[in-house]
């Protein structure tokens, strides 16, 4: 069966290349910004690229559990690399915003306090910090059941990230609303009523 074949294949494919690919993509996009390949406004373009990649990877991390329960495909060994790569892009996004876009500490602070879309983006980032810090075997062992509880912070973090994106756009472009809809759907399948139906099916 295809599921077994995928699961067998994952035994041979390690997770570490995900880190290398993430850093390579970020580096390449920065280079594109330097050379003009991101257009005449590379700061906004780079900010958006990094932010979207952070969201995409957070969403990918949310897909792994339902994928296993609904289809049996088990990609759980890649989840840490995906989650940490998401954190890496969120950090890069924040860095571009603070150091290339806003460029003044006083205004960075002012924006975080005064602009709700910045506030919730920042909140999402802060929620991700303890998750990134505890994404190692030692923490999992030391924290036991609390580790799983702590890592449920992914849910509010990704939801805030999705709202952050919708909140800053003008008009009704499709992308941010698609991201938010996918995030809400992936969180919804984790609620009890859905899980009950699934168990009977």
């Amino acid at each position: 069966m295809i599921v077994d074949r995928i699961n067998r294949a994952t035994r041979r494919v390690p997770a570490w290349p995900i880190y290398i690919v993430a850093v390579a993509i970020a580096g390449f996009q920065f280079y594109q910004g330097l050379t003009g390949a991101l257009g005449p406004e590379p700061i906004n373009a780079l900010e958006r690229e990094y932010g979207e990649l952070a969201l995409k990877l957070l969403i990918a991390g949310l897909v792994i559990t339902p994928l296993r329960t609904f289809t049996g495909v088990n990609l759980i060994k890649y989840r840490r690399a995906i989650g940490l790569s998401a954190f890496f892009f969120a950090t890069a996004h924040l860095a571009v915003w603070a150091f290339l876009d806003v460029r003044a500490w006083s205004r960075v602070i002012e924006e975080i306090i005064k602009r709700p879309y910045v506030t919730i983006g920042m909140a999402a980032f802060v929620l991700l910090i303890p998750l990134a810090v505890t994404s190692n075997k030692a923490s999992i062992r030391a924290m036991g059941a609390n580790w799983r509880k702590l890592h449920k912070l992914t849910y509010p973090a990704v939801l805030l990230g999705g709202i952050h994106y919708v909140w800053l756009v003008k008009g009704w472009p499709a992308e941010p609303f698609i991201y938010l809809a996918v995030i809400i759907a992936l969180l919804a399948v984790r609620f009890k009523p859905f899980r009950f139906q699934r168990a009977r099916a």
Partner: peptide, 19 residues
């Protein structure tokens, strides 16, 4: 209501253009 209008960035200045 969602962002400041106090500064702007002239496009075309590259990745390190100041506001």
């Amino acid at each position: 209501p969602r962002w400041s209008q106090a500064t702007e960035r002239k496009i075309g200045g590259g990745l390190f253009a100041a506001r």
